[in-house]
Write a protein that binds this DNA or RNA. Structure first.
Lengths: 231, 231
DNA sequence: GAGTGGTCTAGACCACTCA
DNA sequence: GAGTGGTCTAGACCACTCC
């Protein structure tokens, strides 16, 4: 592993040259063929290394134009989409779950607009609370499309959370996440045991399966919540 | 493109089989050799398709054990680390920048602890404001290690923001991001034109170059701020 | 020990884009 | 048209892990 000619070694060596300014930002670096000769590797191996650097945002590649060191390393971080339960248990706390309400209901205008729907489709509205060691951790307010996930009609969600059930029964192909800060409304404050207007951390998620909206969920956390990711 | 035997087509077809439960969660799927025959492709091509599915969290692969459909699709989203300026200009607003203070100073206990430093190193403390169309967008409060980035002593940051300068002059190898909601303290409220105690969205970022801390920054946004990522 | 995925090679052809 | 990256192939060997 990490031999002189492994794609990892080649990738890391090239990353080093970029970090240490041997290859300057904006500069054209040698072509794959040349690098392959230099590193004593096949072109495919160099290609793999370069593709990883491109994915990491360190270089920009274009056919015919060649590979350049990125001017503004538009790097990206990855973050794992957790199950609330795993998130809580991962912190060594006991996970508890409480269903607050579950009813079929037409979604309010704002939800409708958020999902980009033109016609009125039947939805299931589920509200529940996730606790860590008896402390409120997340208030989940969710709309599930009965059109996209009809099976959900037969699930009562008293034992399993919608989060968990959907992960196992309703695959998605696309998702959009939005995070922001807000002031707790009276209900959120009560459920999360905060004072009125206290800052909360909100995550909103919409998922689709092939253009069809599956679910929209709003997850509210007390301001002690930390969302962490590493690069 | 997307021919029958391209790695994309193979990847998408396998993703479809997983989404439609033709391959059940936890089930072992055929080996690369078998799949290669089925798709009329080389094993390397199937391998690339499977590696992408594994990276997306749809399958889990282990040597000798084979490839299984993930039980809990631990999927991950990617988000790009933006330059504030690009973020603002990307919204069609005019970017403005104001330096508030710049001074060498030993970091407070809390910063010190956050960086995991044992000895007292010299730091540069920079505070500045980023505006979108004259509206406060982000208050940046940053500590830069003079030990790791000595060149920063000669930069006065009145014309270029530390964010932008560092991206171009101080590469990093590791980064940690933390996001949370908080209540604006009096200074933050004044600078962001909010009322005292209003909810703000805070991003904290620490970057390292080979174990050595480069900078710690706290970025505060008004609660109208949205952080969005797509999968 | 044997079976699976992980990686590498050498060669080939294609796709895109610049001149 | 020509040069660069993008992808595929066929074959090979290796590394890990389960039996």
């Amino acid at each position: 592993m990490s031999e002189r000619n492994s794609f990892r070694a080649i990738r890391d060596e090239m990353a080093r040259r970029i970090a240490e300014r041997l290859w300057l930002p904006g500069a054209l670096i040698p072509g794959e063929e040349v690098l392959a000769r230099e590193f004593g590797a096949a072109r495919a191996t160099v290609n793999r290394a370069l593709q990883e650097l491109a994915r990491a945002g360190l270089v920009e590649r274009r056919r015919r134009a060649g590979t350049r060191v990125a001017l503004h390393p538009v790097r990206e971080a990855r973050f794992v989409i957790p199950l609330v339960r795993q998130e809580i248990e991962g912190r060594g706390a006991v996970y508890r779950y409480r269903l607050l309400s579950r009813e079929e209901s037409p979604p309010p205008e704002i939800v409708h607009a958020r999902l980009g729907l033109d016609k009125n489709l039947p939805f299931l509205h589920v509200r529940c609370l996730h606790l860590a060691d008896r402390t409120p951790y997340q208030f989940e307010d969710r709309w599930i499309s009965l059109d996209a996930v009809p099976a959900v009609r037969d699930v009562d969600f008293s034992a399993i959370s919608p989060n968990e059930w959907l992960v196992q029964h309703a695959p998605f192909s696309e998702a959009e996440f939005t995070f922001f800060a807000a002031a707790a409304n009276p209900e959120e404050a009560r459920l999360l045991q905060l004072s009125d207007g206290a800052p909360i951390f909100v995550g909103e998620r919409i998922t689709w399966l092939r253009e069809k909206p599956i679910t929209l969920v709003r997850m509210a956390h007390p301001s002690s919540h930390r969302m962490v990711m590493r690069l």
